[in-house]
Structures are given as structure tokens and as C-alpha cells.
Amino acid sequence: MESEYTLYEQQTSRQLKRWEIRLHKLPNLVERASKSMQTGINNLIPDKVHTTITATVKGIIQTTLFGINYIPAQGPLQGLSLADRDAKAQELLALYKKIAAAEGAGTGAGGILLGLADFPILIGIKLKFLFELAHVYGYSTKDYRERLFILYVFQLAFSSHEKKPELLLTIKNWRSVADTFPPAEAYMDQVDWKQLQQEYRDTIDFRKMLQLVPGIGAVVGAWANYGLLEELGVAGMNCFRLRWLQDKAKPKKL
């Protein structure tokens, strides 16, 4: 397949293979201990609290994925090379890291209440970034299946090591997977929202908890949000690069 690619695309393909290997690596001792502690904490949290948080996450993501406000005004970019798309994606990521850092600093400086408000705001920033990233790589978010792809990318970026291989497999086989989807509303009923919110919360917990500490909230909030957007950017760019290379090798049938 690589013989069909330019030199840049061949290099990218090899980078993606190394990224996939890293995703399949087993967590180290510290990561396993952290996950075990977070699981224990989750078990102590009353079901009513989990239900409330789950409903919040579900509401935010559903509103974002199936509203029209997040669809970029500019249509998907056409006719660009992968190198040009990657350059534009890096510019977009740099912008959103600054936006997230500024938001984290502002809410972190405002104490516990504003710190808690950062949770839904940050999800919105992340999803808005992914919407625009899709258009950079030539995929229109007017198609609900592209918005579901964004949901999988979001989960891949903020999920446990155990879940990443399964999510990556879905992303790698997206063309065939997307053909099996029911209507959008029916599909969303099949999402395990409790698991999604727990995986997401466990991934960001330590950094975001520090944001609530008086005196250091602003600094930590900026640092945490900047880093979380960086992680999302790496996952998002690699997922879209993977699809772009697959589509070049096997163009869609008209």
C-alpha cells in the first residue's frame, strides 16, 4: 500500500504504526495503581451521583454532536495534500490549546464553583476542535456518521488502556462500521454513557482535582487544559490521518 503514497505519506504511515503500538502497550505500575484507586473511588460514589454526572455528559455530547452550532461555517477542505492538512491541523490545535488554557486559568482562579463549571465547558471546547479538525481533513460534519466518528475519537483520547484497542479497531474499520449504523437517534441510545463518563473522568481526574486547590487553581487549570487538548490533538490528527490514507488507497465507490 505504501508504494501508492508520497514520501511524506509513507513517513506518516510509519508514524501511525508506531502510535498504534504505543496504544496497545500495557499500562505501567503507576498507571495501574492510579486506575485501581480511581475504580475504588468510583465504587464509593452513590449511584445517584453517577446518574447525575452521566446525564450531564450525555446531554452535553448529544447537544454538541446533533446540534448545528458546532458545524464549521467553512466546508471541508478539498484538494489539499496530507502535508498541507497536517500543517493546518497543527495551527488549529495551537489555537485551541490557547483557548483551553485561558478557559482553565479563568475558571481555576474562580474557586470551586467555577472550577466545577470548567468540566462541561472543556468538553465543548474539545468537541468544537474535533468538528473543525474533521473539516481540515476533508470530512463534512453535516453527515451524522462523521459526528459519530468524532465521538469515537473523543473516547479513544480519554479512555483506559483496556478500551483503546477496541476503539482503535472501530476507527480503523470505520468505512464498514459506519454502513451498519442505525439512524443517529437510535444509535445514541446504544452508547454506554456511564462507562464513557467514568473513563473520561478517570483520565482527567488528577489534573482537574488540582485545579480546585486554592492559590494554584489558575496555573493548574491552564496547564491541565493545555495538556488535555494536546492529547486530544494527537489522537484526533492520527485518527483522521489514518482515514485519509485509507481513503487514498481505496477511494470510495460512487
Rank of each mutant, 00 (worst) to 15 (best):
F158N: 03
L228E: 00
Q10N: 08
E146C: 12
H24R: 13
I216E: 01
T54F: 03
L228C: 00
I171W: 06
E2M: 07
E20V: 08
L133Y: 11
I216C: 04
H50C: 04
H50L: 03
L122Y: 15
L92D: 04
K126F: 13
L44T: 01
I150E: 06
F181A: 08
W223A: 03
W193A: 08
L93I: 11
V57N: 03
E230K: 06
M188P: 10
E162K: 09
N28C: 10
A235Y: 01
P214N: 02
L133D: 09
G115L: 12
A134I: 10
F131A: 13
L26G: 10
L156H: 03
L169P: 00
G40I: 05
Y70G: 03
D84P: 02
F154N: 02
K163H: 12
I61V: 12
R14V: 11
D86T: 05
A218H: 00
L196R: 05
Q197W: 06
H50I: 01
V219H: 01
I71T: 08
S140R: 14
F158M: 02
L29R: 14
L168A: 05
G110P: 10
K163W: 12
L212V: 00
L254R: 11
L228V: 00
T52Q: 06
A73H: 07
Y96C: 05
A102P: 08
M188Q: 11
K25E: 15
A55Q: 05
A100F: 13
G236Y: 07
Q211Y: 01
H50S: 05
G217S: 03
K248Q: 09
K98T: 15
Y137P: 13
R22E: 13
R32W: 07
Q90K: 15
Y8P: 05
K58V: 04
I60P: 00
A33K: 08
G104M: 11
H135Y: 12
G227D: 02
K35P: 01
L212P: 05
N28T: 08
L122M: 15
L82H: 10
T203F: 06
E199C: 09
L127M: 15
L16F: 10
G227V: 04
G221Q: 02
A100K: 14
V191H: 05
A178T: 08
A83G: 03
E2K: 15
G67R: 04
K25W: 06
K253V: 09
A218P: 02
L16K: 04
K128N: 11
S159D: 02
P72R: 10
D118T: 12
A33V: 11
L130C: 13
V136K: 13
A235K: 02
K253Q: 13
G75K: 09
H161M: 05
G59Y: 00
T39V: 02
T63V: 06
L232T: 08
W223N: 07
L133C: 11
G215I: 02
D179I: 04
Q195W: 05
N42R: 04
